[in-house]
Each structure stands twice: as C-alpha cells, then as structure tokens.
C-alpha cells in the first residue's frame, strides 16, 4: 500500500516537472537563469538584494505594459501606441493632481481611464473602420504623443504630492510597490487568460479568427475589450513611471512600444497570434531588465548596448523556436 502511494506521488511529481519543462516559456526562463548565474559569477554587485529589487522595480512598468500588449498579440494584433498612451496617462494623472486639484485616487483613476479610453479608440478604429491594427495604432502613436505636447506645452508636470510617489517609490514589506502591483496584475491576467471563457476565446481568436466568429463568438467585441485592457495596462505603467520619477513627462515612454513588444516576443508569444502567456512576458521583461542592469554593472561601452540587446533578443527567441520545432518533430 505504502509503495503504491509513493508511486502515485512520484508520477504526480514527474508530471509536474514535465509540465514545467514543456511550458511555453521554459526555454526563455532558462536563458534568464543562465544570465543570472553568469552575472552572479562575474559581478559581485549584481548579487545584492538591493540590486535585484531595483532590477525588478525597473522592469515592472515594462512588464505591466507588456501584459497589456500580450493579450493584443495573442489575438494576432499589434499595438504601436503603447509608449504614447503610457506617457499621456502619466501626464493626465499628474495634471489631475497639480492642475485640476483632484485628490490622489481620482487623479490616478483619471489617468487609468484615459489609457483605457485610448485603447478603446484603438479597438474601435480596428473593428469599426476596419483598419489594420498596425496602421490604427501607428496613427494613435502620433496622435497621443502630440496630445502629450499639446496638453503640457512640452513642460513636465511637477509639484506632485508625496502620496502620489508611493506607487513608484514606496515600499510594502521592504519590497518596492511597483513589484507588488506587477504581481497582482500578473496573477489577475494569468487567471483571466487561462481560467475564464473570455480568456480562452482570446486565444481562439488569435488561433483562427474566422472559425471563432463562425462558432458564434462576437470577435469584434473581443478585440475592443483586448485593446481597451491593453490601454488600461499602459496607463497603469505610465502612472507608475510618473510616480517613480516624481514628474509627469510629455516625452515619457517614447520608444517603449518596442521594448514591451520585445519582452512579449522573448517570452514566447507569436506575432501571428494564438500563442503567448503572462508568465512568458514577465520572463521576457525580466531578461530585458537584467540585461540593462548587466550592461551598466559591467561598464559596457554605450555604443555596444543596442547591439547586445538585439543579440539577446535573437538568441532567446531562436532558443525557443528550436525547442518548439524539436517538440513538433517528436509529435
């Protein structure tokens, strides 16, 4: 009897191990671990808890924006307006407090709602005007960035109250607030994508849009939802960054769209849709964060930094592709 129980538990354990190994983002997770081990060996300052927390704090905003665009990419779409919505939401939240005299939470909500509304507009352009996501969000990238300059005249919004700084500079149980926010958002969206009907439909939409539509699912509504949620996430990320720096900057998030999309792709998502996970995006964002930290700690000349980031993106994704093709060959 005892030996039977042991055998069952062994089977369960090995099943879990197999599941972990075959998880979509496992290979990039290995890349991340290898990077950490390498840095642990060559750079003593990397090992400090402060440094590790700082890395996590710095990539939290990218990762939250990345979670937003992960859902968009799963549907087979793309969002190039991430950086602009990121910047504008931060500016609006800051202006809400400084210019409109709103209390903390209404100002923050105003920023998040602004991001959500802009995401909703993206979705409406794509669904109602039948614009390709690349074009619709490229247009929004310019329009929203312009709004940043129009509303601020190019000046950063300063004079933010100390309570606002908690979101970017504060600590809960000795861990920076942005990390907590990232953890909560990652758990919510992981459950949403994997355990809810709407989440499964998002995957189905990316896998085969026509089949999903024929099966009676309102794909238009699903797309609008996904782009709106994306806008909401970019908004939250923008507000965290505004809080971290203590200013609402009209230039904030310039070019961040590529960083967020890179994190998602490194994390194993497919730009053709149907594939992608929140965990993968977290690992992708962590790889980018560790890399940036490593380049500073190792005093790598600035001119080489983009080169190295590009190489790591290609290596991580190639590693994942090879693993997937091996898996397919075995099937």
């Amino acid at each position: 009897m005892k030996s039977e129980k042991k055998s069952i538990s062994n089977t369960g354990f090995s099943r879990i191990i197999k599941q972990v190994i075959h998880a979509p983002s496992f290979s990039v997770f290995i890349v991340m671990v290898l990077m950490c081990v390498l840095m642990y060996i060559v750079s003593p300052p990397f090992r400090s808890v402060n440094n590790l927390l700082s890395i996590a704090k710095n990539f939290s905003a990218y990762a939250i924006a990345g979670i937003g665009v992960t859902m968009v990419i799963i549907t087979g779409g793309i969002d190039l307006s991430i950086g602009s919505i990121f910047g504008f939401s931060g500016v609006i939240a800051a202006m809400g407090m400084v210019e409109f005299g709103l209390p903390l939470m209404p100002a923050v909500l105003l920023g998040i709602l602004t991001g959500t509304a802009l995401g909703l507009i993206n979705g409406l352009f794509i669904v109602k005007l039948k614009l390709p996501p690349f074009i619709a969000t490229l247009g929004m990238l310019s329009i929203v960035r312009s709004l940043c300059y129009i509303t601020t005249e190019g000046y950063p919004v300063t004079g933010l109250g100390k309570e606002f700084l908690f979101f970017g500079q504060g600590y809960i149980l000795s861990i920076p607030t942005p990390i907590w926010l990232l953890a909560v958002i990652a758990i919510i969206f992981s459950i949403f994508l994997n355990k809810t009907v709407t989440g499964r439909r998002i995957y189905a939409l990316g896998g085969n849009e026509e089949a999903t539509r024929i099966s009676g699912i309102n794909t238009d509504r699903l797309k609008i939802l996904v782009y709106s949620l994306g806008g909401c996430m970019y908004g939250i990320a923008g507000i965290i960054t505004a809080s971290k720096l203590g200013i609402g900057q009209p230039t904030a998030g310039n070019g961040y769209e590529l960083d967020a999309i890179a994190a998602v792709v490194i994390g194993g998502a497919s730009l053709s849709g149907g594939v992608g996970t929140v965990i993968g995006t977290l690992v992708g964002a962590a790889i980018m964060g560790i890399l940036r930290n490593a380049l500073v700690l190792l005093s790598i000349k600035s001119h080489w930094q983009q080169f190295i980031i590009g190489c790591v993106i290609i290596i991580a994704v190639t590693f994942d592709q090879l693993r997937k093709s091996n898996k397919l060959a075995k099937v």
């Binding site: 700082s54 710095n58 971290k244 230039t251 904030a252 000349k301 600035s302």
Partner: peptide
Amino acid sequence: VVYVGACDDDVDKSVTIVEDYTRAN
C-alpha cells in the same frame, strides 16, 4: 573616466543608469 553610460535622452533611463552604476560602485 571609468564609465560612460548613454541614456538616449530618456529621463527614466538616465535615473536607472545613475542608480545602478552608483549602487554597484
């Protein structure tokens, strides 16, 4: 000169670079 870090005119990146390098050195 022991280090030159480029922030690409990005305020957030400038803060990250200055903080990371100072913490490590």
